[in-house]
């Protein structure tokens, strides 16, 4: 079973150019990172292209990983998510191919990881629920679907500047709650 420190080790070894470690890291994390790309891009071909770029980026950036203070999965997921959203924004017209959503599902997180995740998850859920009506959905939509301010403004039927003011206020409130 792959633990957090296994992933950390693999990233460190990839950082010094270990191709075998790269292969192991791919095996251990590609399903999760592909899930991120697919959720954001909602298109299989685009997600495959994004995943490819994600792993090239991992290969290039892993040598600086140990200095940045991120937990390994956060670092990988953040990298994949940002890259997928870059692609999403660059895409002219959004394409959706629901039929294309694959049915190959991987096993979930390890029980240990799941336990840690669920307590942290409960905390952010609690704090999101303290936000004004709908604002939690805006934060979730931005994080999980890569929604832009324009999309959020359309959904809430408010001007984009109003949306931004709301969201910035919500972020500060969220932070205050999470820091308790």
């Amino acid at each position: 079973m792959t633990t957090v420190s296994d992933i950390e080790n693999m990233i460190a070894r990839v950082g010094i150019g270990d191709r075998n470690a790269f292969s192991l890291l791919y095996d251990a994390t590609s399903a999760k990172l592909f899930g991120v790309c697919l959720r954001i891009l909602n298109n299989r071909a685009d997600a495959e292209e994004a995943l490819q770029e994600v792993f090239v980026r991992i290969w290039q950036k892993s040598s600086s990983y140990s200095a940045n203070g991120y937990s390994p999965m956060t670092w990988l997921i953040t990298l994949a998510r940002n890259l997928a959203i870059d692609k999403l924004r660059a895409r002219k017209a959004p394409t959706t191919d629901i039929d294309d959503v694959p049915d190959l599902r991987d096993q979930g997180p390890t029980p240990e990881a799941a336990a840690i995740a669920s307590s942290e998850r409960a905390q952010i859920d609690t704090c999101l629920n303290e936000l004004d009506d709908g604002h939690a959905d805006a934060v979730r939509g931005a994080y999980l679907n890569g929604d832009s301010y324009q999309e959020l403004a359309d959904r809430f039927d408010v001007p984009i500047n109003t949306m931004r003011t709301w969201l910035r206020r919500s972020l500060l409130k969220l932070k205050e709650c999470l820091s308790k």
Binding site: S30, A31, Y70, T74, L144
Partner: peptide
């Protein structure tokens, strides 16, 4: 990033197609 990543369990892991790894390498 760490705070938001606690929501990342909603990203369902999905196995990428088998050929992709060889292609990347």
């Amino acid at each position: 990033d760490e705070d938001f990543a606690t929501m990342a369990d909603e990203f369902e892991p999905i196995t990428p197609p088998e050929h992709l790894k060889a292609k990347i390498e």
